[in-house]
């Protein structure tokens, strides 16, 4: 057991899987010699050789397309897209190919690939280093979508994703790489070395896909969150003195509906938070499910706090980002409603 950053935890997961399974290969832009622009793959090429961890040409379509071909042969590629904002050239390969391969070949060919990518804002990265495109993937049948919120889960979920027989989109909230950012951008972030969830067990373990976790027990209302917004929600609830039950979804697809329904049925109120834009965001799916399954228990309308429906701006980052103040206001309103 040791404290690790989320970057180290993710690297550890790949390291363990490459060690255990000669079929696991890792590649992407700047991933080989340098170890990735966020250093998630640092040292893997030196340890496993350049045919198991290597630099790819700048072609996201190529990276995912090649991964699909390797998977069809029998390998288990875990590839990196440098930023989620650059995944779109690969979208066709993911949507039309990876997601449907098992279905259309009746299991003759399968696609056990993991596509990792840093996601989310908070680093003044403007419109090309800040996006949260999870809903573009949850809308696609055949994909699994994972968003870890801490080093412990990141390692366990990534191992589970690599071992999974189907394609997994693995979104890494880059603002969490070094600590649990709670939206208070004017304060230093606690490093993972000082946070319990920075405790990462050695060796192989999994956090199962499809299982949410309660980050905080509470009675007054339920907050559904994932990634960075888990900590923003915690800060907002605390600052407003609200006894919120906070659920970290961890896997968006398949979704742990049971945990959600159990909680909302208990509290009768539900606030959904995500960084991605509002319209057709994953919050819409969550709100619909909560309405379908908890309608008679609801005491207030289901609320959503999200990024605005604009491209992610540069200078106005903190006007855009749904920080603790906005989330807190929504929590207070949900209690009145």
């Amino acid at each position: 057991m040791a404290r690790k950053t989320m970057i180290e935890a993710i690297r550890d997961a790949m390291d363990i899987m490459m060690e255990r399974d000669g079929d696991v290969v890792v590649f992407g832009e700047d991933v080989g010699f340098f170890g990735g622009v966020f250093r998630c793959t640092q040292g893997l090429q030196a340890k496993y050789g350049k045919t198991r961890c290597f630099d790819a040409p700048i072609s996201e379509a190529g990276i995912v397309g090649a991964a699909i071909g390797m998977a069809a042969y029998g390998l288990k590629p875990c590839v990196e897209i440098q930023f989620a904002d650059y995944v779109y050239p690969a979208y066709d390969q993911i949507v039309s190919e990876a997601a449907r391969l098992r279905y259309r070949s009746n299991g003759g060919f399968t696609c056990p690939i993991v596509v990792r990518m840093p996601t989310g804002g908070g680093i003044f990265g403007g419109q090309t280093h800040s996006q949260s495109p999870e809903a573009l993937f949850t809308h696609v049948s055949g994909l699994k979508v994972v968003v870890p919120s801490n080093p412990h889960d990141a390692k366990g979920l990534l191992i589970a994703a690599i071992e999974d027989p189907d394609p997994v989109i693995f979104l890494e909230p880059k603002r969490l790489y070094n600590g649990p950012f709670d939206g208070h951008h004017d304060r230093p972030v606690t490093p993972w070395s000082k946070h319990d969830l920075g405790e990462v067990p050695d060796g192989h373990y999994t956090v199962p896909l499809g299982k949410a976790i309660k980050r905080r027990e509470g009675k007054q209302l339920t907050i559904l969150a994932y990634g960075t917004m888990v900590y923003v929600a915690e800060a907002a609830a605390e600052e407003h003195g609200i006894d919120a039950e906070i659920i970290d979804l961890r896997t968006l697809l398949p979704l742990d509906l049971e945990t959600i329904v159990e909680s909302v049925s208990k509290t009768g109120r539900c606030v959904i938070v995500h960084e991605a834009t509002l319209t057709s965001g994953f919050g819409a799916e969550l709100a619909a499910l909560v309405q379908e399954h908890c309608f008679y228990k609801l005491e207030a309308p289901v609320a959503r706090v999200t990024g605005w429906d604009t491209p992610y701006p540069h200078a106005q980052e903190w006007d855009y980002f749904p920080g603790p103040a906005r989330v807190g206001r929504a929590l207070a309103e949900a209690l009145e409603g």
Binding site: D85, Q127, T128, P311, H314, A315
Partner: peptide
Amino acid sequence: GRQLPIMYSSKEHGFFSISGNL
């Protein structure tokens, strides 16, 4: 303030808006 620094745009100077996506 919308765009990342150096992603200039100037129609008058024959300089199409830089995307950032390669």
